[in-house]
């Protein structure tokens, strides 16, 4: 193995990237774990907001629908970086106000929770639109049939709407997941030590910028390609029993 690195002239890089302390590989992997944790949390939180948002947009009252329209429009028109700063300050201020009123004094907010809250609100706006489109694509006869049988709303959502819309929603949700993993990099700017910030610190202290940034890029790319494969399987599963798209398109 070492001979292999020697011949390629990569011995230096391999030493820098090794997992034990003189190398920085462990830091990068810890950053990646943090990034993934936030991406999972934000994606899940965003899906929750998106599901309620989509139901609100489709079946809610006029005021609720207008408010949701404002939410999705504003979030999608303002850069994530600006939203992250605004939501970060608003979130920490609100929690501190509440805890002061309750008599606890100032609290320190963990980076993971703040990141999930901030990215989740952003993801929620996109998820609302994706899920709204998917629910609309379910043939209304199925939902009406379930209603006619007297199925309670929550059971209807669980048994009819969600399974039937899955095949329409998966491509959009796959896209959202990729955006979530890449948006975690933005948290580097508010000082949360996820992969990009760890990379920059490692690069700055060793001056080996190319090695570390390329390594981090490779890590992100592995995540992207793996999740692409996973989502392809999910889509195949969600589409089971439906006619093939290829033939339908022609």
């Amino acid at each position: 193995m070492e001979f292999f690195f020697e011949t390629l002239g990569l011995a230096e890089s391999a030493k820098l990237l090794s997992l034990s302390p003189p190398g920085w590989g462990g830091n990068l992997l810890r950053g990646l774990a943090n990034s993934m944790q936030i991406a999972f949390g934000a994606f899940g939180f965003g899906l929750l907001i998106g599901l309620f948002g989509a139901y609100g947009k489709l079946y809610g009252g006029v005021v609720l629908r207008d408010l949701l329209a404002v939410y999705t429009t504003v979030i999608r028109a303002v850069p994530e970086l600006v939203l992250i700063l605004i939501l970060y300050y608003v979130g920490t201020d609100l929690i501190n106000k509440i805890s002061e009123v309750m008599g606890y004094g100032r609290v320190e907010i963990s980076g993971v929770v703040a990141g999930i809250w901030v990215l989740g609100v952003v993801q929620g706006a996109y998820a609302t639109e994706v899920l709204r489109g998917a629910i609309q694509a379910v043939s209304p006869g199925q939902i009406e049939a379930a209603r006619a049988y007297g199925m309670p709303p929550f059971m209807l959502m669980r048994r009819v709407t969600i399974p039937a819309m899955m095949s329409f929603a998966t491509p959009g949700l796959a896209n959202l997941w990729l955006i979530a993993t890449k948006d975690t990099a933005l948290l580097a700017i508010v000082g949360f030590s996820e992969l990009t910030l760890e990379t920059r610190q490692a690069a700055a202290s060793t001056r080996a910028y190319f090695t570390f940034f390329l390594a981090a890029g490779a890590l992100y790319l592995i995540v992207t390609l793996c999740s692409g494969a996973v989502f392809a399987r999910i889509e195949k599963w969600a589409r089971r029993g439906q006619p093939s798209l290829k033939r339908a398109g022609r």
Binding site: K182, A185, T196, A203, F210, F213
Partner: peptide, 23 residues
Amino acid sequence: CTVIRGTPLLLQIWLLYYGLGSL
């Protein structure tokens, strides 16, 4: 296209600026 779409833009910007800038 896969590489550009699969990595965060912030990382690309820093790679070019710090990487090329130090080279």
